[in-house]
Design a protein around this nucleic acid. Structure first.
Length: 215
DNA sequence: AAGCGATCCAACCGCAAAATT
DNA sequence: AAATTTTGCGGTTGGATCGCT
């Protein structure tokens, strides 16, 4: 039970950050609701967890996204849709919130994707459900991609070809110039297609297995 | 310098799954 | 086995900042 107004909201102060970090340094993370109570923070557990994961954790990388990171995000998004935590799990040092924000504010614009009502977003609806919700990989465990992966730009990206079950490969630039792919289905509803080898190619070394590794 | 709309991003919310009791 | 609590996800919001007039 949470009493009304028991917890603070809004931006975190330096003092709150200090208290949270000190508590985690001594006791470790997890049991977020307990942290909030025991450390004397007037923040709910959810807020503490989010603050740690998105900002205070030493594994969080700050600063602008590199071209390599952007390219990787674009390709992964093209493959699996708005699975931000899954995408973030493959972009070392970036959190799902960072990736989501960057996509919404920069990449979707860059690619000319109109922001749609997310609930009606057609990107991979059935696959998303199949993957389940709990598909994240903890930040601490994904700091390095597999050795055989490459992040070079200029790779191919898969887009729907117009027919129900065939796809062509397009460069990121082609997609940028193609202002309408955000409004179309990017994948066939037949999820089995995603498991076929040729669909792995667009990631230039990242396979769906790699993306889904650790599920 | 001031006003104001646009942009960006940290943080919140609701929900569902997983874990615990 | 059921109820409760905790954790995690994705969408959304609100306030700080930017940039233009």
């Amino acid at each position: 039970m949470e009493a009304r107004n028991e917890y603070r909201k809004g931006l975190w102060t330096e003092e709150e950050d200090r208290i949270l970090m000190e508590y985690i340094r001594v006791h470790g993370k997890g049991k977020w609701n307990r942290i909030a109570k025991m450390a004397g923070l007037k923040r709910c557990g959810k807020s503490c967890r989010l603050r740690w994961i998105n900002y205070l954790s030493p594994s969080v990388k700050r600063g602008d996204f590199s071209e390599e990171e952007e390219d990787l995000i674009i390709r992964l998004h093209n493959l699996i849709g708005n699975r931000w935590s899954l995408i973030a799990g493959r972009v070392p040092g970036r959190t799902d919130n960072q990736v989501k924000n960057h996509w919404n504010t920069h990449l979707s614009k860059k690619l000319g994707i109109k922001k749609e009502n997310a609930k009606g977003n057609a990107s991979l609806p059935s696959l998303s459900r199949k993957l389940g919700k709990n598909t994240s990989v903890p930040m601490e465990s994904n700091s390095e991609p597999p050795s055989d992966c490459s992040c070079e730009t200029g790779g191919k990206t898969m887009v729907e070809d117009g027919s129900q079950s065939t796809f062509k490969f397009a460069s990121t630039q082609e997609i940028t110039e193609n202002n309408n792919f955000g409004s179309s289905l990017w994948f066939s509803n037949d999820d089995l297609n995603l498991l076929t080898p040729y669909l792995m190619e667009p990631l230039d070394g990242y396979s769906l297995d790699f993306v889904l590794d650790g599920l």
